[in-house]
Structures are given as structure tokens and as C-alpha cells.
Design a protein around this nucleic acid. Sequence first.
DNA 1: ATGTCAACGGCGCGTTGA
Length: 262
Amino acid sequence: MATTVCTWNINSVRLREPIVLKLLQEQQPDVLCLQECKALVELIPTQNFADLGYKYMVARGQKGYNGVAILSRIPMTDAGHRQFVGKKDARHCAATLENGMTIHNFYVPAGGDIPDVEKNDKFDHKLKFLNEMRDWFHDDSPEKSVLVGDLNIAPREDDVWNHKQLLKIVSHTPIECEHLAQVQDSANWVDITRQDIPDGNLYSWWSYRARDWDAADKGRRLDHVWATPDISNAAHSSRVYRDARGWEKPSDHAPVFATFDL
DNA sequence: ATGTCAACGGCGCGTTGA
């Protein structure tokens, strides 16, 4: 059986309910992982998702900020969630599908503007969050697992529009990239998107502030799909669905897809 | 780099976070 997973930072699930429905209807992923729902779980508009067949949901929410949800048209069970850096914010949830595959959905802190832990608490928070992810997966040794989400880091030179210009910009600094590499190494996570699309610039986020995001194309690859080595060879057909960035009232992120033959 | 969104509190728009 093929299972298609999609991850999308939606930047308010209530405001963007219409384009979530459009994506589900048009692309029909089996599982859709959302970040930045910006709503309490009970305020997520689940009825119309269920009417399209997506009747299963595992979610974590809070008022106004963060929030993660996994929508599915195939049965799944809640696989728990973790708190990071001693905060009660909703940045992780997990679900296990009937085929035994566990999906971790993450929203890593953005980290503010100044890449200095002394001057910027948000940057300190981001690095601590990544350290806790690393330690958890090191101790837990996940199997048959997929990790998706907005990791708020574009690790490779070809994951940003200009490597040199972004070296001191939060999301592409060497210290963040090193922290993310340690998370990846902690369970030998395979970057499925780059396994499938190894060469060339690839982005999943374009700022709202650009005059013409499409023409300027000053993007970054902040959204990721990883898998544990035991299932990495079952993955294929990765893609960034760039069209969705140009839809009516868009998110600043595009959906990222991968399919697993499991 | 540039400079636009969205939620909130509470009903007009400044603040916070991205």
C-alpha cells in the first residue's frame, strides 16, 4: 500500500480552511500534517475535513500561536506528544497509522531575528529545542517513523536563494545547521525530500514581504520530511507543491509531499 | 534581506510573533 504524506505550515487553520479543503480535494494525500494552526483544538474546523473523508485527527493546540495537527483519511491512533524546553506550547504531536508507521509532526521555534543566544531568548529557545529533540531521538531510537514539519532551518546551500547572504540570517546560520544535523544524526533520519530531489535549489517558504515572491524567488527550504532508515527505501515521489503558495489568501509556506510504499 | 501577514484584546488599532 502507498501512503502519501503532506506537511504544510498553514499560518492559521481557521483563516485558511478554504485552501486546506482545496489541497485535500485536489491532491488527496492520505495524511496532512499542519503547523501554526493558531487555534485551540476545539476551534479547528474539522467538519468540512471529515466531509471530504479526513475523519481522523490528532492535534495539539493553544490560543493564538503555534499548534500542530495531523489529519488523515486512514485510521490512526494518538502516539503522544512531548513538551520541549519546559514550555507548554503546542509544537509536537504524533500518530501511528494502521501499517505501523508513526508520524511525528513538529513546529520548531523560529528563533527571532538576532542569531545570538546572549542577546535573543528566542534563539536560545530554538537551539535548546533542537538539543532536546536530539536527546529524545537518541534515547528513543525510533523505528518505522516519519518526522515532518516546519523545522525553521534551511540546512543546505541550495536550500536558500543565496547562501552567502543568509549565513547570518536566522534559519541558515552554521550553528543552527549544526544543531539540526545533530537531530538528524540522533536516529539516522534520512532527508527524504533530498533523497528524491538531490540536486538544485529547492524551497518551501517565500516571505510575504517580497513584492513578487514568484519572480524574486528568494525562498528557503524550511519544511522537511525525514524517515528512519528502515523505511527510507520505501519513500518516493517527493515534491514541493509550489502552486499553493500562489493561491488566494496563501500561507507563506508551500506543502511538501512524500509517498511511502508501506 | 525586505517589509507583509495573523491573532489578540476588545471594537480601533497597537503589540507580538513570524
